[in-house]
Each structure stands twice: as structure tokens, then as C-alpha cells.
Write a protein that binds this DNA or RNA. Sequence first.
DNA 1: CGTTAAAATGTAAACGTTTTCAAACATATG
DNA 2: CATATGTTTGAAAACGTTTACATTTTAACG
Lengths: 340, 340
Amino acid sequence: MAGTTKSDLKDVARSAGVSIATVSRVINGEAVVKEATRLAVNAAIKKLGYRPNRAAQRLRSTHRSRKLIGLLIPDIHNPYYIDIISGIDAYASAHGATIIIGDFSQDARRERIYIDTLRSESVDGCIVATTPRTEKYVESLIGEGFPVVCIDRELKNLITDVVKSDNETGAFAATEHLIKLGHKRIAHIAGDLQIPTSHERIAGYRAAHQQYKLRVDEGLIISKHSNYESGVELAAQVLKMKKRPTAIFTGNNLLTLGVLEVLHGQGVKIPQEIAIVGFDDMYWANSLNPALTAVRQFGYEIGHQAIELLFKRIEAPQRPPVSHIVNTQLMIRKSCGTKS
Amino acid sequence: MAGTTKSDLKDVARSAGVSIATVSRVINGEAVVKEATRLAVNAAIKKLGYRPNRAAQRLRSTHRSRKLIGLLIPDIHNPYYIDIISGIDAYASAHGATIIIGDFSQDARRERIYIDTLRSESVDGCIVATTPRTEKYVESLIGEGFPVVCIDRELKNLITDVVKSDNETGAFAATEHLIKLGHKRIAHIAGDLQIPTSHERIAGYRAAHQQYKLRVDEGLIISKHSNYESGVELAAQVLKMKKRPTAIFTGNNLLTLGVLEVLHGQGVKIPQEIAIVGFDDMYWANSLNPALTAVRQFGYEIGHQAIELLFKRIEAPQRPPVSHIVNTQLMIRKSCGTKS
DNA sequence: CGTTAAAATGTAAACGTTTTCAAACATATG
DNA sequence: CATATGTTTGAAAACGTTTACATTTTAACG
């Protein structure tokens, strides 16, 4: 029967008739303790329902404490970020670090609360995918000497470690794929224009047009936010265009899914009536019908590199910031049809 | 320029020419400190790159206001768990609590490492979805008096707080839907049989058959693991059956996606050749083609209730355990066709 | 039995904070 | 100027452990 009031080492020691040092030794199992006393102490521990105070243990222990890493993610529902989290988590748990995740789902207030929380839990460093809203906040964090690694996008006013995909090249490949298949009117449903990533992808879309001597119809580049709902809304807009595009290139996976809902809902045949290629692959891209052709970002790899960088920065706060650009890969499946 | 060696309150105090008490007050922002000294102290903090030791803070602080909650999730790639996390996270951040997430992706070793980590970070309690492998471990945790709330499934040998879906009723509704549509040979691709949840869903499947006086063909209930790959493997198996079923009921969303990959890959028409209903809805169920009919679990709600329960248990460790059963809802879309 | 080494235990000093209490200082009042 | 009142500060005692060091007990041996 565990006791109801929390007890001390001292209580246990008294109850077992030994000193607190002995109790400590029993608990840590290190030093040689006489069998009889060990039994007595363990009995006392059980009787009192004693549990060591981790904070105190941690404070006193010489053993280097485990690292605590904060993670700020804009939207945990986005499969891409899940991959990133996996990558970070795998490395962290392999190195005895713990991660605290903050998903601030498009909510500025919560985002700030989280940053404060991270600070008050005194994490050793954090990995963030900033939004325009939190940029200043994160910058001030760095100003305080806080180790931070950015993923997905860099900060405007500050040079930091950053790990991101090669968005422009990825978007180029997607668009090029469509062009080579003979498409001339390709709509681009882009993500939120406040996010640099969106612009990089638009740039890739433009570059492909330029390379293949195709004029970009500015009216074909549309955007609102980066979420599912915007995909729905903008897809409807595309379908209503007087000269309907023969293909759509979507700026991220949430937009892709929203677009697909509309296309299927209206019975538009893919790829016969409209081809589609999305930025962001999904592990279940083959479960879509038709299987989705998409630009794969190596989220796991990005997460892995980010935390590796963060560890290095924690060790050496003064080291010059680096940026890692991770390649993307066009996964060709069925949603764009075939050449012949 | 942040210092490179870690510094004390004492160091800061010396550098700012005040006592450690004053520095502490500045840091906690509570007591009234003269503006001039506050500035001086903050300057010293910045200069030395000082960061408080959270173990010491925790140890000394009486009003340990912010709770630290551990979360043990079997697979962060499963959208259902993401919903649960969202629910927990929302409540937590509204109550100034922080959550530490451990995704142990089907890996027993990491699972144990995580439990140890949670313990050493001195979390105030945790929410777990146990796997057969970790059950004993979690039980011993509870034995130590650790506040734990289970989601999805209860423990075998111990009564705890638990929040879960009404699996049997949900599975019943899905199967009944199929039966009412005229299906008589319904395959059930179940999840891992080591997980109680799988059995509850199978029970629902059976109950529907019984209610409608249909014999259950045991050969139609197949299972392996609960993941995507098993969905792929078992779907292929279904397609090869001599008397091919006219419908499939899948035991969870990963299985559903795996099954869809195979069905689409082989050009099987849904729902004309085979109807499908899945356990677990997904926010992009409408992006599938045809839109997926599925049993919705209210993951967000489950997460919310779980953490509420956990808070209560932390406050009152001796309160009798309760279990909350959350209803499910059959979301009828297009993957089963219509009656007429 | 006396001596010595080894084993087991105890004492007390950390660990880095917060917090109580009292002292010092400032300001206003008579 | 003395006193009262408030505002800032500092000294030192916690918090619950681990651990270096000292001490006691036990075992071993001649």
C-alpha cells in the first residue's frame, strides 16, 4: 500500500534505520550494500511509496544531463512535417535527447505561448519552421544567444543555420514534366505568398516555362493560404476559367488534397481532362486514384540534418551558420498521364 | 556575445554587482526590482549567456505551476494519433502545460528508452497507448505511483483511467452498412491480433453478421500487422480468393490505404467490383477516388478527455479509475455505392 | 586475542535555484 | 529633524538528492 503523502530519502532512511546515503546507494544500485540492509531499505521504500525526486537527482548528479530540444511546427497535420519530426525524433532518441513539440496550428497567440514555454522549460535549443508572424520573436530568441536551427525557410534579418529543400529545382522539375508531356496551359496553385517557400516554387515554375520558351500566363498563378480549404477554393476557381488549363501544379500537399476533392467531386477525369502534379509526396500517394505524381521532399533527412546541426551549434555557439539544401525528387506516377 | 562556459546565478550576481536573490527576482519578474538594477542584471545575463538550470528551479520552486506531460504514441504517421495529439496539445497549452512526445514507431527498444526519459525528465504524468510489448513496463510505472492515463486500450493486469472509442459499435455500423447494401461476402482485414482493439472490431463485425442472420466465413477475417504494408499484402490475398468477396472492411486507416493501393493498382473498380469501408476517417477522405466511407473516431475529443483525466489524477492520485468510451460515427460517402 | 584489510555505513558538503526574513535605503509626513 | 511608511536589496535557509571522505563494522589471518 503506497503512502499517500510523498516521502523523502530521509523518511525512508528513518524507517529503515539507516542513513540517507545508504538509501541512495540502494536506489542507484551501484555501491556494495549488505544484502540485509538492501532488503530493509527496499521494504521501507515500498512501504512508504517513495519515489525519488528527479529534479533533485538531476541537480546533484554529475552525469551530463540529457538534452531537451524544442520543436516548433506550423501544422502537425501536414504529413511533410511528420516526416521531419520522425527524422528529428530518431536522432534525438538515439542520442538520449528529449524533444518537446509545439504545434501552433496557424495560431499566432499559441505560437508565442509555446516559445515562452520552451524558454521556461529551458530547452537546450530548438528547431523552428517560422511563419511570418513569429519571425521577430524567433529572432529575439536568437539574439539572447539561444541555439536555433531553422527548417524550411530562413529568417529575414538574421543568418542562422538552416535546412531546406531545393524548392526551385523541385518546382522546375514538376513543371518541366508537365511541359514535356505537351501541356501548355499549366495552372499553379501556390501556397501563402507571405511564405518565401511559395515564391521559390513559383520561381521554379517560371524558370521551366522560360527554358521551354513558354509564356507564363500570370492569371494561372493563384494563391490564398497554404491549407486544404484554399486548395478547394482555388481548384474551383481553376475549373471556372474560360480557357481551362490542362494541368495543375499544386504548391504543397494540403493544397493537392483540396484540389483532388474538387476534381473528384465534379467528376473531372485525371489525367485525361486535367493532369496534376503536387509539391510534397505522401507515403500513400499510391492509394490515390490515379496515383499521384509529386515532388518528394526528404523530410526525414531534413529533420535529421537539422538536429545534427543544432547539436553542433549547442556545442559551439560561435560557429559560423551554415545552410543545407536538400535535393528533391520527382516521383512520376499516373496523375499526369504518359507521353505517347 | 554569449559566454562559452555555463554560468551561475552567482556569476551573474557578481558581474552585476548585486546578490543572487536580486538576480533571481529579475529572472522571475515577480518582485519589484528597481529599473536600473534590472537593466544591469539583464545586461550581465546577456553578457554571460546565462541560462537558469531547470532542475534547480524545479527542485526549489514550491508552486511548480507548469506541468510537464509525457505522451507515448505508437506511430506518429497515423493520422488518428495526430488528432489525439492535437486534442491533448490544445488543452495542454491552454493550461500552461508542456508535452513531451515520444513516437516509438513500432520499436520496443526505443519505447523503453522513452519511458526512461520521461521518468528522468520528471514529467508529472503521462498518456500512453500501450503496445503488447510495453504493457509490463507501463504497469510497473503505475506501480511506482506514476499518474498514467491510457488511450485506445486498457492494460491487462491493472485498472487505470482509460479513454477509447466504442470499437465494437463502430465496427458493427460499418459492417451493417455493407450488409444493408446487399453484400453477403464481406472480408475483414483486421489489425494486429495482439492488440485488443482489433478483437473488439472483429467482434463488431461478427455481431452485425449475427444480427442479420449471416454466417461468418472465418476465412474472410484475415490479419497480420496494423500497418500499410499489411494492408497491401492482405488485399492481394483477398483478390486471390476463389470466391472473391464483394466488400472489404478494413481495421484501421493504414490498412485502408494499403488496400487502396492494391485495388487501384490492379484496376479493381470501387465500389462496383469491390466496396470498401474503413475504420478511421481521414480529413482527406474526400480526396480519395471514390470518396471513402469510414468509421470516424473522434481523436481530438479522445485526446482532450485523456489529458483532462490525467490532470485530475495528478491532483488526486487516489481517485478511482474511470473509463470513457467515446462514440464513433459512420461517415457515408461513395466507396460502398448506394442501395438502389 | 590482536592486528589489519576490506566491506559497509554514516557525515556533511555540494548542486543551483527560490524564498523568508530582516536590513538598508528612500520618501513622505508631522 | 525625527518618525513612519514603503520600496529594494541581501543573507541565509531551504529543496531532495549524490558523493567524497571519514568512520565503523566485519572478516581474515597469524
